[in-house]
Design a protein around this nucleic acid. Structure first.
Lengths: 342, 342
DNA sequence: CTGAAAGCGCTAACAT
DNA sequence: ATGTTAGCGCTTTCAG
């Protein structure tokens, strides 16, 4: 077993003090008046033997772990994993690593994760906050920790946020359906209303109201079995509302919805229109291709990283930034005016 | 700013020694002869003030960071993020946290990640190894670190692995196409042949050979622009081979292929058959639904976690385990015998 | 310009 | 049954 070498080993090997090695390693040779000669000697030796400092010891000593904690709802959801990917790439160059957890939208798991991150002395937090995380986040902010909320916010907290304009995104998608002559548009969403979902509902309602059209909102339990969701949507479709279009508030809800439509032998584009909030790599390949409200994933990840890095650099608290990003309605075939079979 | 309390604070508050607190905290009261009374006193106080040990200090002292390092190819790929999710959930209950990185299949990034993990003193490694990681992994194994390879292996290393039977999965999918009367089946794969891809190619070739059918292999550059891939596949289809079925070796290659097919106004099921290695949530909803070789994602994650946890418990090296999991051919409409337009 | 020494928060061997 | 102490590997005064 290769023994791991420590600063004292390299100091001993070169007959210099540990302190000099540490100073050189941290690029503070200049300000501490270390000779260029010694610096070179140390650096080349370090490189030769491939020494790397123990991050745990550095962290313990400096109080900086160079680690960022990220809480997503579910890392296997492409929306979150894609953002995680962008953040990872971006902060990596600055020497930060990502440690993450999936909250499943549970207050308990999320708080537990927060506690864990604290114990790991993470330097910053990137959170898609589960409900009930207000207190935890408030404590962090009071403690001066960099915290960025994304995807959804927590009301009344002086905290940086990066979110999309859910209201307008939803409103414009609904208007688009209305323009294409849909008149009975149902909105399929989650029963647990977090703020991003509330905004999506409100956008939908606003558009309908402006045109004096009836609203039908179908609430689905978070994480209920897929078959159950499919059944609920079938019931909705069979119901008295004579629905001609379905607007899904999330990507995975749409997957269940499309299945329900298929099982009922309805045809998207002929019998019913479909729009989905949150785009997906595959939607362009569906038949018909699915119209979606696309979120600027890359931009979200970039902004989150940028603000975090900013806050990490600042010694004194800087005002929090609140970024609102535009969504983009990607019109495909599923929302075209119906061509009904005779 | 709430000051973080340390063991000495709670020892002082209770007028006991730090050692007693530490012992109790680690559940070693019994074996160290601490009175139940003192134990209760300490525990209830700790709970009351919400004390949690600093993981960095614990890690430095014990040499165990309670952190697992995971390298995937790309965390935004659902295959990898789904496995990460399963692993995360499973090891979480045992007090381990996951820290991960995406290698993009680059030797350099992967090695860098490995180095980082080492510096963080991770207790174990879960790797979908990029090419060129042999030496790094060998060093780890020599050092006695728990290492599990998944999705692909590294030849000749005495290391635990969890992979699927790529050969048989590929072979049976090809046979299925042959049974359905396809005669000119092209295999679209990546030019960089890692072992899992080699096996998939071989399975395809074996099936064709058994039926004396011609093979056509189309290599695509890893991570080339999607448009370029689409164009390559269009060229393949326009070529002289008179191809009647496409077998894609990965999920995302299929997405490009389907786009190519669409752009050429060909119809899957009428003009061409399609099968994909690695299933996808959405394939059932495509029109026609796409036949795929499904990998047991959950099982992969579970096995990886189980073996890792095993190795983490063992003090002395235990023999490495090599798990080969079966794939499952999910037959849908895209591979049905062609019903050609007249 | 360089080295000695303290200490981050914790655990474990050793005393009492 | 409980307390004392050394030290994990590093950084950072401060004295030479």
């Amino acid at each position: 077993m290769k023994k791991k070498l420590a600063i004292k080993d390299i100091a001993a090997a070169l007959s210099v003090s540990e302190a000099s090695v540490s100073i050189v390693l941290n690029g503070k040779a200049r300000q501490n008046g270390i000779s260029v000669k010694l610096e070179d000697k140390i650096m080349s030796f370090v490189k030769k033997v491939g020494y790397q400092p123990n991050r745990l010891a550095v962290g313990l000593r400096t109080g900086k772990s160079k680690t960022i904690g990220m809480i997503v709802e579910d890392i296997s959801d492409p929306f979150f994993s894609s953002i995680a990917r962008v953040v990872e790439q971006h902060i990596y160059q600055y020497g930060y690593r990502l440690i993450y957890g999936s909250s499943e939208n549970s207050t308990e798991i999320a708080n537990d994760l927060m506690q864990t991150f604290k114990n790991y002395q993470v330097d910053g937090y990137i959170l898609a906050p589960a409900p009930g995380l207000e207190d935890g986040v408030e404590d962090l902010i009071k403690a001066g920790a960099p915290v960025i909320l994304f995807d959804r916010t927590l009301p009344d907290l002086p905290c940086s946020t990066v979110v999309v304009d859910n209201f307008r995104g939803s409103e414009s998608a609904t208007m688009h359906l209305i323009e294409n002559k849909f008149r009975n548009i149902a909105f399929v969403t989650l029963s647990s209303r977090q703020d991003q979902m509330t905004e999506r509902v409100n956008g939908y309602l606003a558009a309908l109201k402006a045109h004096d059209l009836p609203a039908v909102i179908k609430d689905i339990e978070y994480r209920e079995a897929k078959e159950k969701t499919v059944q609920s949507i079938k019931n909705l479709l069979k119901g008295k509302h004579d629905i001609d279009a379905l607007f899904f508030s999330t990507n995975y809800l749409a997957l269940s919805g499309l299945e329900a439509i298929k099982e009922m032998d309805l045809v998207v584009g002929q019998d019913i229109g479909v729009v989905v909030f949150d785009d997906n790599n595959n939607f362009a390949l569906f038949t018909p291709a699915i119209t979606a409200v696309a979120q600027p994933i890359r931009e979200i990840g970039l902004q989150v990283s940028k603000i975090l890095l900013d806050q990490l650099q600042e010694d004194h608290m800087i005002g929090s930034q609140n970024i609102l990003l535009k969504t983009k309605l990607v019109v495909r075939d599923s929302s075209a005016p119906l061509r009904r079979h005779s």
